[in-house]
Every structure is written in structure tokens, then in C-alpha cells.
Design a protein around this nucleic acid. Structure first.
Lengths: 339, 339
DNA sequence: CTGAAAGCGCTAACAG
DNA sequence: CTGTTAGCGCTTTCAG
């Protein structure tokens, strides 16, 4: 095989333009103190050689040491919630000439730290994280070295850092209040794994709202660790087959809600049993009945988190703040079915 | 402000362990010729200092020059199709210790080249691209320098490179045949922008299938440049209000299909006018009637593209091949409504 | 088995 | 306005 031609370096450009390498550097970085004539010659050499500066080499030497990349850790880039957040983060990054390394950890505590460390080896300038481990203490050193951290969807544990999360408890309370207002007292709550902070926050909001209305929790089945559609379907079928079944269901997460919809359809109960889900669903308004949900504002979460991160990267050292993003209830029919 | 402590380097580790910097390098790279005793001492120093090697510096000097990152260019990381592809690519990358830089260009030809060049400045080891420009000739040099390129969803123009695309024309033909088999002869085709290769391929498949059955295309309205839900809805309402309206609709893309669904509902025609969409929709099976679609295999597209790219990165220099991924028709009700 | 010297491609700090 | 020298953090090469 013929060896591929070597990629041109600044040196090659300098040689072709008949200037020093430093002058080329000045031109590529848009530094002002270069004559128009020389600038033109350098640019023409760059053009001719199809030269693209090596950002990695530049960042290594540059005084601020910035790589121009940030890391984003989410459950999965394929998850609609995370994908929407990702896009909002990317928009903010592109504006500033930054790139985004996104990593999926599937809510697996084992994968959190190795994934973050891979990002750290790449010397990302900052990290936006959806975490799942009991503690993020392993990030303390990194934070001390000056890498800004912004946590999304869940508060950090063992680290003092900025966070941007939906008001999970309040959102759940909102939905619960809505169901109660429609006459329900026997409401089943189906939650994701309790170790996922947002899941237990939602449960808390649910239970507290019941308490505020004096509804005994004994009438309301609360089941956690429901992580996928199939488990949710099976559970709903079971709950509804019992004596004195719930008249309303609260799906603690999108897959759980979908599982519940399927189960209700299967036994023809979708016009009889009320349903509200946490997290919006595409096409939810086109189902019969429309699926009422508590929606998170993914775009706000992503862009607020990114803004905060870039402020930190730019040198802001004010005390970390938690930032709460409101949720909103979208009534579409299923949540308005009376008891 | 107190300056943040400096991040430890290999030198610091070497000093603490009382060895040379090269020995530390040997340990972090798992090179074999280091005594167990020294290895232990070095590891303990690494541990103590919370040292993480700088991959960027390493890659700069390393003989193969690999950065361990690949670039992925898609329409939008928030688009479900792209997000699923992204995840498949990420899985393949993680297995090999690679990171993925994903960039969204929103099918905007103006943003394609700058976005790709940003990736090139980061010296990604390879690129997986969904392109939109008329030509990708600007990548010829880069390809000559040895950066492998794999195109997905659309064939490259002006570059000879690997590609992984769905059989858009055949998928469209499949759907068309299905509608014809259910007695339809007046079928409307609503396509995305004709400049998007996959969109015009789908149109081609549609028209060719009509031809095979001797159906005059004059009876079948073919409208391109339908890019969003609202435009699609308006168009469907218009088409159905004409004299001699179509009895079936083929939605050339997911947003278009959703727009069509809304329009059909709005005038109560969803049980009367047949509908098939290209691209699957979440919850499509729960609508009334279920939405029949031609589904692409995003996971296969992403993983085949990534496999190919990593083979190239590993040195494979066999001639580039186009790779066709089959689509499949999922009948759910809406596509089986008779004429 | 270990270390010293050189240098990847670039920018910083200074000279001229 | 332009060039020279040094060196970012690491791996390579080659010598012990």
C-alpha cells in the first residue's frame, strides 16, 4: 500500500508561505499584528495545503489549557428525554465553539465512574452529569483542579456543585392533586427504581399530597422498582384484578406509563380508570383518551445547565446553586376520568 | 481567589514513586517490562495523587496519532432516528475505548462543512456522516490523509467511501404495493425536501411501483418539500377537500405522517382514508387505527456503520462498499383500510 | 528491566 | 510587525 500523504502542519504552511511558524499561528488565531500582505500569503498557503490546525496540540500548550470539549453523561442518548437535553446542550456548546462528548450509562451505578473517568482523560473543560451512584465524592479532586460540574435531573451526593433538576416532587403532587380533584381516593403509584433519586422524589410528592388531603396511604398501592413496560403492564393487570382496585393510576416514568396504557387497553379499562404519567409521550394527544401527563422542560434543563457550565468555565466562582425547573400538567383526557 | 491546585502530571507521579517518567508511562500503558515491585509503587503514587493520564498529550506523540474519538454528524441528536443510530454507534465505540462527538446540522447544507471541519480540527479518527450538501468533495483531502469516512442514510456524492443506507426506494415500493393490494389507485405521496436524497429515493420507489401496476401517476398527487407537521396537515386537508380525493396517503417521513394523522382525525377520516408512513412512530400501535409504517432498522444502521468505520481505523483498505439495510412493513390497521 | 534525550504540533514569552 | 526559543504532557528511540 502507498502510504497516505502526511497531513500538513503549521510548519508546512510556514515553509510554503515563506514565513515563520509563529506567524502562521497568529493568522490562524486571528491575532491582529500581522500585515495584510503576509496574512493573505499565509491564507493562500493554508488553502492550498488544505491545512486544518490541530486543536489538540494547540490546547496542550495554550495557557488556559482548554480543550473546547465538554462531557455529557446521561442514561441513554436514545432516550427522548436525554436526547432533548443533549440537543439543548449542543446548541449552547456550538455557539461557543465547543464540542460535546455524550455518554450513556443506562442508570448503571457500575458504569458511572469509569465513564466519567474516560471523559476526564480527554480533559473535557466541564461536565454535565446525570448520576446514579450513591455518591459523587470521587469527583471532589477533579472539581478542585478546576473542572466545573453541573448535575442534571438528580442532585449530586457528596459534592457541592450546581444542579438543574425538575421539581419532581411538586410535579407528582400536581398530578396527584388533579386526580384527587376528579374524585379519586384509590390511586396507584408505579415508580421506577427507588435508588434513582428522581423516582423517589416523585413518590415523595405523591405521598405528601395524599397526606395533605387526608387520604390514607393504605388505600393507595405504591409500587417501586418498575423499570420497563412489561413489568408495568403486568403490575397494572394484577392491581386491577384485585378486590377494591384503584380507580386511578400514576405512571412514574414514561415506559411505565406506556405499560399501563397497554394494560388498560387490554382489559378495556382505558375509559374507566384514570391515568396520569410523568414525562410527556409523543403522540399522547392522539390516543383515545388522550394521555394526561406531567411534562418536564428538557430544553430548559439542557440550556440552563449548559449556560451555568459555560459561566463556570469562563471563571465564575460564585457559590453553587441548585436550580429548579418547573414541570407542567398537560390534561388530555385520561387524567380527567372521574372516579 | 486561591488558585486551584495544579492537576498532577506523569512527572509528579514519577517523583512521588521515585522512578523516571518513562516508567510511569510503561505502567499506565500496561507495558510488560516493569517489575512487580515498581509497578506497585507507581500505582500507589497514581492512586495517591488521583492521577489521570492526559489522553490528548499521549495521542499527540503516539506513533499512530489516534485520538480515540470519532465524529458523528446527523440531522439532530434529538431526532428519534438519529438518537437510535447514535446509541448504536456509541455502543460500538465504548467497546473499543473510543468517544463519540455528535453534531446536529438540521439538514442545513450551510452547516455541513463547518461542522465537519470542527470535527477535523479535533483530529477525530473517523467520521460517520449524514450529509445534505450536493457534494462531499471537500472531504477528498481528508480521506487521502487517512481519515475513514462512512456515510449513513444517504450516499455520498463526489467521494468514494463506505455507506450504510436503508433501502428507501424499496421500502416505499413495499408500502405502495401494500396499498395497491388493498384496492387503492388514488394514493397521495407527501415527501420531504427533494434535495434530501432519501426523500427523493422514496418518491422514486413510490412512482416506480405505481408504474409496475400500470397506475397513471396523474391520479396520484405527489407533493415534495413537506418538512413539518403543520405543512403536512394543511396539505392533507386540502387534498381531501378536492373533487376525487385520494383514498390513501403515504407519509414520506415521520413528521409528515403525524401531520397527516392529525388532519385525518380532524375531519373524522381516519377510518376511511388509508395511511402508511415511512419511519416508525412511538405508540403508533396504540392509536386508533394503529398506524402502519415502513420501519428502518436504526440499530443495524448504526452498528454496521460503526463496525465498518472501526475496521477502516484498524487499517482495512479494501474497496469501499455500499451497504443496504432492509426496511420492513409493519401493518397495524391504517394501511389495511380498503379503498 | 530502567532511564535520558528528543520531539509530536502548537502557543507563550520574549526579542528584534 | 515578525521571528526565536522554550515547553505543554506525553511516547518514542535508544542507551545502559
Amino acid at each position: 500500500m502507498a502510504d497516505p500523504p502526511r497531513r500538513p502542519t503549521m510548519k508546512d504552511v510556514a515553509a510554503l508561505a515563506g514565513v515563520s511558524i509563529k506567524t502562521v499561528s497568529r493568522v490562524t488565531n486571528g491575532e491582529p499584528l500581522v500585515s495584510a500582505e503576509v496574512t493573505a500569503r499565509v491564507n493562500s498557503a493554508i488553502e492550498q495545503l488544505k491545512y486544518h490546525p490541530d486543536q489538540r496540540a494547540g490546547s496542550l500548550r495554550r495557557s488556559d489549557g482548554k480543550t473546547g470539549a465538554i462531557g455529557l453523561v446521561v442514561s441513554s442518548v436514545a432516550n427522548p428525554f436525554a436526547a432533548a437535553v443533549h440537543r439543548a446542550v449542543e446548541n449552547a456548546a456550538v455557539e461557543r465553539g465547543f464540542g460535546v462528548f455524550a455518554s450513556s450509562i443506562d442508570d448503571d451505578p457500575e458504569r458511572e465512574q469509569p465513564t466519567v473517568e474516560a471523559l476526564l482523560r480527554r480533559r473535557v473543560d466541564g461536565l454535565i452529569l446525570t448520576t446514579i451512584r450513591k455518591s459523587q465524592g470521587y469527583l471532589l479532586n477533579e472539581q478542585a483542579f478546576g473542572t466545573p460540574l453541573v448535575f442534571i435531573d438528580r442532585e449530586p451526593l457528596g459534592v457541592d456543585a450546581d444542579s438543574v433538576v425538575s421539581d419532581h416532587a411538586e410535579g407528582a403532587a400536581l398530578a396527584t392533586r388533579h386526580l384527587i380533584a376528579h374524585g379519586h381516593r384509590k390511586i396507584a403509584f408505579l415508580g421506577d427504581r427507588a435508588m434513582i433519586q428522581s423516582a423517589s422524589e416523585r413518590r415523595r410528592g405523591f405521598l405528601e399530597e395524599l397526606g395533605r388531603h387526608g387520604i390514607p396511604t393504605t388505600e393507595c398501592p405504591v409500587v417501586m422498582e418498575v423499570h420497563d413496560e412489561a413489568a408495568s403492564s403486568a403490575l397494572v393487570l394484577d392491581l386491577l384484578s384485585r378486590a377494591d382496585p384503584p380507580t386511578a393510576i400514576f405512571g412514574g416514568q414514561n415506559l411505565v406509563t406506556v405499560g399501563a396504557i397497554r394494560a388498560l387497553r387490554q382489559i378495556g379499562a382505558h375509559h374507566r380508570v384514570a391515568l396520569i404519567g410523568f414525562d410527556d409521550l409523543p403522540l399522547a394527544d392522539l390516543l383515545e383518551p388522550g394521555v394526561s401527563v406531567v411534562a418536564q422542560d428538557e430544553n430548559a434543563i439542557g440550556s440552563i445547565a449548559a449556560e451555568r457550565l459555560f459561566e463556570r468555565i469562563a471563571g465564575d466562582t460564585s457559590p453553587p446553586r441548585p436550580r429548579i425547573v418547573p414541570t407542567r400538567l398537560i390534561p388530555r383526557g385520561s387524567g380527567e376520568i372521574p372516579a
